[in-house]
Design a protein around this nucleic acid. Structure first.
Lengths: 255, 255
DNA sequence: CGCTGTGAAAGACTTCACAGCA
DNA sequence: TGCTGTGAAGTCTTTCACAGCG
């Protein structure tokens, strides 16, 4: 999940459900692989397996785009690649800027998946003057002072933020003021943006925490639930009645 | 969106919905920030704003964990931090290995959000012998030959894959064979794993593609739109024969 | 016959709105 | 009084299952 909070009905997208949109890139990746192997057609079953979803879902997804398959046969790979690309807006060129060229920013600059999907890294921006001029992934890093000019000169509408959390909101504000209307945020902070600006976020530690949750379940499957008594009891109730299910460290859960 | 769930009704987690689990880290982050500022209590309204969700959703989410709030007052910050940490399994230590120490792997190794959440980078592994011994983020990189031993010696149950796509499945298989049961995959490929192993994926370019989709919609808001009406596909029915490296597809470029 | 496309049913998630407790 | 906790309603998503076409 990632869309920021541009409180919009969220389903304005010409009838295509968000859940479907989120899967289109997956299908596209699988189709591109097939295309490179010169496979002419695929069935929903095969493509679904390659994309990691089930076939009913895939067919339903495609039905929102139109009827691009052939009954009894399957889908024409090249044709579908084109249709999905067009639907996603990848048939046009999207200049993007990456702000914050630390380890992560450098990784993003080097990431091949961008260029091959219609995204062009128009500029790398960092606040550290010492980095100015240094090329990363063949692109010279420019100083943050140039941000507004760069965005405007290149007609950038998508910005990537990979700065430390503390700088993210400020960078975001400047990007938006300069004309950016879509932001991909890697900083572990909630960005607030005006209406009409989309934010998606990727938080590396969140994914790991979700895994830990499930991992924990596996460990103590049917035993009496969380027994592990680690350290540091919470407590420190600030006001009068904080009344947990029982005192401080519940060993049982309320139903 | 990220999960690569193994076929399961998904309703295994002792009643806590997946959607709620995915938000717990968000709440935890916001609460940690409040805790650092020594704020004793928060209302659902305030916390929801800090986490970027709405308050009804937050209260509903917390209701799955138990009744940890105080009517008329709000939630005790420290107590909630503890309860959520425990629910997520972050009160225990999770050794993780990162396989593939390129730009991204290095960024992950340096990412502070791990250590502060109970995750400990037990080892960095790369297939390039030249990297062996070189420290990244203060941790020496070890050769891939050591993978099985490392996982086993450290009791690693969570693995992070940041290798190129081509190596991911193989690395995954080895991790799983060595005992890893949760995998965070950054490689742009679908991993297949046996039942009982969880995979979550993060694909940097997918997020960008979703943004492009919405960005494209903004461009043609009032102005006629592409007019892909629900029933009529854009043209060019896919008759047989379509193939060849790069064909004649774009005969109908819109916009 | 095989596979797509899709109504209809089931299920998951979100939002509403208010009872009830501190 | 003020805010939590939660049934109930509403919305979105997935799955089923089969009609219909090549």
């Amino acid at each position: 999940m990632a869309t920021g909070r541009t409180h919009r009905p969220a389903t304005r997208s010409r009838g295509i459900p968000e859940a479907t949109v989120a899967r289109l890139p997956l299908y596209l990746r699988a189709l591109t692989a097939l295309s490179e192997r010169s496979v002419p057609t695929v069935s929903s079953e095969e493509l679904a397996a390659a994309a990691g979803v089930n076939s009913a879902k895939l067919r339903k997804d495609f039905s929102y785009l139109g009827s691009y398959g052939t009954r009894g046969v399957g889908y024409d790979v090249e044709y579908l690649v084109y249709q999905i690309s067009r639907e996603l807006g990848l048939t046009q060129d999207w200049p993007v800027v990456i702000v914050g060229i630390g380890n992560l920013g450098a990784a993003l600059a080097n990431y091949g998946g961008f260029a091959s999907r219609g995204f062009r890294v128009a500029a790398l921006i960092d606040a550290d003057p010492a980095m100015a001029g240094t090329p990363v992934a063949g692109i010279p890093v420019q100083h943050a002072d140039e941000l507004e000019r760069i965005v405007s000169d290149n007609g950038v509408s998508i910005g990537v933020i990979s700065t430390p959390a503390g700088a993210a909101q400020q960078v975001c504000d400047r990007l938006v003021a300069a004309g950016v209307t879509s932001i991909l945020n890697f900083a572990p902070t909630v960005l607030s943006v005006p209406d009409g600006v989309d934010v998606r976020k990727v938080d590396l530690s969140i994914e790991l925490q979700i895994l830990a949750f499930h991992e924990q379940r596996k460990a103590g499957e049917d035993t009496s639930e969380n027994a592990p008594d680690p350290a540091a009891p919470p407590v420190r109730s600030a006001s009068a009645g904080r009344k947990g299910p029982d005192g401080d460290m519940p060993a049982v859960m309320p139903a």
